[in-house]
Amino acid sequence: MADIPLGNLDRETTRRATSIPEPAAVDVRPVLETYGLCVRSGRRLLLRDIDLVIEPNRVLGVIGPSGVGKSTLLRCLNRMNDLVPGLVVDGDVLWHGRSIHDRGLDPDALRARIGMIFQQPVIFPGSILDNVVFGARRVNGLKRRRWHQRAEQVLRQVFLWEEVQDRLAHPATELSVGQQQRLCLARTLALEPEVVLMDEPTSALDARSTEAIEQLILDLSQRCAVVLVTHDLSQARRVCDALACLCLCHGVGQLMEQAGCAELFDNPDCRAVADRLDAAHPPPNAAAAD
């Protein structure tokens, strides 16, 4: 894997440094859109009126304070919230213009097309190879004779092939946490998703593994749309094309702003972003006043 110090670079500088071309602006129709999305748990409203647009080949960062409902929002996009008893979703999510709540739409097929990476890597008991093809063999009917070939393809995409090619039959739990997270990404990519939802994928990783995952996100945006929930504003600046800022209003998560990354950082409407930017880079007169 290219060893690139991502540091405080912004998205454009990172693209140039990693020789990742700007995605061709062929199809800018949204892959996913949400309209008036509300989520309730019993009587408690968790999210209110979220209107979000997710475009192909773009990385959308979702930022906001803890407990604002970022992960809940993410799980609405592939109907993972259906699996949580007591959670009610109102409003709509459109996938290529069609409601994901349509009766005729298969939620399992939807989840295969809209993959998800969790905060902590989830490794199934079994070998590295078993884990890579775990979904593809069951959902796409990948034949056993093609397992190895498919595994190599996606493990190369996540820059893990060189590290594991000699031990595909070894238990996947032997891998480091960073490698496990890349393995999870490979497992999702084996299903050829259109959108990858990432719920703070680097929060459990060290700096080096975080760099690797960020590099992967940039690379991944060449093939599909990425929605990245993150707490780390500098990470958002490095890898996201656009940002959606959620804030708590009277205890309910609301979308305050969705804008291009540079626009939002340079001129933030969202109080949470402005506050955190101020905290990171206090104005000179503020320091003098203190």
Binding site: N78, M80, D108, A109, A112, R113, V122, V139, L191
Partner: peptide, 8 residues
């Protein structure tokens, strides 16, 4: 969750 997230 991980298995459901893969579309199983």
């Amino acid at each position: 969750e991980a298995a459901a997230g893969l579309g199983l």
